Simulated assay, not measured.
Amino acid sequence: MNIRVVIIDDEPLARLAVKVRLAQRSGFELLGEFADGASAYEGIVALKPDLVFVDVEMPGKSGLDVMAALPTAQRPMAILLTAYDSFAVQAFELAALDYLLKPVDDERFDEALDRAQQAFPYRCRGAAATVAPALRSFSVRNGSRTVLVPVADVERIEAEGDYVSLYANGKTWLVRERLHNLAKQLDPRHFHRVHRSAIVRLDMIAELRSLTNRDALLRLRDGSVLRASRTYVPDLADALQQRDARTHS
Rank of each mutant, 00 (worst) to 15 (best):
N169L: 03
E111T: 07
F87W: 14
A198Q: 05
P234V: 02
I3W: 02
A78W: 04
L101W: 05
S139E: 14
L13Y: 10
L31G: 09
V233L: 06
A206T: 01
A239I: 02
W173Q: 00
L70W: 01
A132E: 14
A183R: 04
P133C: 10
L70A: 03
A91N: 08
F87E: 08
F28H: 11
G27D: 07
S139R: 13
I8Q: 05
D222T: 09
L30R: 02
I199R: 05
L166T: 00
D203M: 01
P150K: 02
Y99P: 07
I3N: 03
L182E: 03
R136G: 09
V147D: 08
L81P: 02
A38N: 13
D235M: 11
A119D: 10
L220A: 10
V66Q: 06
V175P: 00
F120P: 01
D98E: 15
Q117H: 04
L135G: 09
R75Q: 11
D10H: 07
A198Y: 01
A23S: 15
E107T: 15
T231K: 05
M77D: 06
I157G: 02
F120T: 02
G32I: 07
L240Q: 01
A14W: 06
D187Y: 07
A132N: 08
V56K: 12
A216S: 13
G126V: 07
V56G: 08
E93L: 14
P59N: 05
D65T: 04
S165C: 11
V5F: 06
R201W: 00
L179A: 08
R145A: 14
A116C: 10
A35H: 09
V200F: 00
V66K: 07
M58N: 12
L182W: 01
C124R: 14
P59M: 02
Y167N: 04
Y167P: 00
P76A: 02
R115I: 09
E11F: 07
D36P: 03
I8P: 04
A96P: 06
K102N: 06
F191M: 04
A95L: 07
P49H: 07
G143M: 12
S224M: 06
P121N: 03
A73R: 13
A78T: 08
A245K: 11
E11Y: 08
G126H: 11
A78H: 05
I3E: 04
R246E: 10
D36E: 14
E160F: 12
L226I: 06
P71L: 09
Y99I: 09
V200S: 00
P103D: 04
L94V: 12
R4S: 12
T231M: 13
